[in-house]
Nucleic acid binder design. Structure first.
Lengths: 206, 206
DNA sequence: CAAATATACTTAACACTGTTAAGTTTCCAA
DNA sequence: TTGGAAACTTAACAGTGTTAAGTATATTTG
């Protein structure tokens, strides 16, 4: 009989509407203001109902974190069109920074907050979302090394270095550490620093 | 009469013992567990007494953040012995990473957490601690540019780039994003990436 | 068809958090 | 000795994540 299946579907609907509400609160009010109670209020259920569909708050944040990676991956798709691996890495950097600037909350959840990572530790799972994205970078770095565009010894270490450079620029900016510069310059520092970054990369691009 | 002066001194003593207790809790239990009540318990005063000596929690965290910068500055002192500006920058990087690894909580407070920065926004002050440290980097970058060690257009942008690179490596590591690598490699990734970083710097060191 | 059970959801509560207003104690000066 | 200022505490507010227990509702079973 299809009753159980109908119920299954109904459960899925509520699970998804919880996630939708969580996303709305998260994007409107930010990480700190995303509480179980505020999500519950949005879907007009009691706070405890949420625990029947998600193990805890971290599970919800992990789901949102995964959404962020899907969004980033979609932005990265255009990079397949770039033939030259060094140019592809440069373009990746532009996409990455643009993503961090346009979706600072998603970015924070994906690369800074500890909450979503707790879920992995509990379930002894691997960080698929992060690994897939990093694989994309590694692929291009590998090509660059083979073609003499980059002087790294180790693909993973080199990829991590490039990633960290962009992450550092975005994170310091997001966390207000650009205050080491005057206000005018603060606003454009990420773009300025990225320009210097490209300069360094080009020094090897023969 | 010296009574008022004695009282002044006593107030200062309590203010400092609050900060000491805050530091102890912070270093023992971490940022999240550093609550007003836990600090109060340590000094055996009521939680509200703390508000007679510090405006709010952010003010205490800012004070701890400043301590962190003092500690970092002391570790940076040895760099004055390094004559060559590029070598000095490399050594700065080593000191910076070592500091981040040995004092992850201080590092987080100084460069990641938003809390200490709120104090600046409220009081319309400048970030002296950050600026002083950044000035040290800018000085060496300027020298490197003059002597042809680094190809930057802009001293501040170049300095920010170098800072961001190290910060990114430390922050991604601290926030568990090294999980893109296998466990074995995760542990040494910062050192490995730093080695690649030095390689890139050396490419200009003629 | 009625009783028992399983499902879905809510209420109330616990143990916390930062912060403030009001009340109490302590101490010093007039 | 009394008045008042200063130092400190109590109680409370409004919020947090989370859990145990209770309540309807719907489904299955006798």
């Amino acid at each position: 009989m299809g009753i159980n299946e109908r119920k299954e579907r109904e459960k899925e609907v509520l699970q998804k509407s919880i996630l939708t509400a969580a996303r709305e609160v998260f994007l409107e009010k930010g990480f700190d203001q995303t509480s179980i109670r505020s999500i519950a209020q949005k879907i007009e259920y009691s706070p405890t109902t949420i625990y029947l569909y998600y193990k805890d708050k971290d599970a919800i944040l992990f789901a949102l974190h995964s959404e962020g990676f899907q969004l980033l991956a979609s932005k990265m798709e255009v990079l397949n069109l770039v033939e030259n691996p060094l140019e592809r890495i440069k373009a990746m950097g532009r996409v990455y920074i643009r993503f961090a600037m346009e979706h600072p909350d998603y970015y924070d959840l994906m690369f800074v907050q500890k909450s979503p990572m707790n879920k992995l530790d509990e379930d002894h799972e691997v960080w698929q979302e992060g690994m897939s994205t990093f694989d994309g970078l590694k692929f291009s770095v590998q090509q660059c090394m083979e073609q003499g565009y980059l002087p790294f010894n180790d693909v993973e270490a080199g990829s991590y270095l490039l990633w960290a450079t962009l992450h550092g620029m975005c994170n310091l900016y997001d966390r207000g550490r650009c205050k080491v510069l005057d206000e005018e310059k603060s606003e454009q520092i990420v773009d300025l620093a990225f320009a210097e970054f490209l300069k360094m990369l080009d020094a090897f691009g023969r």
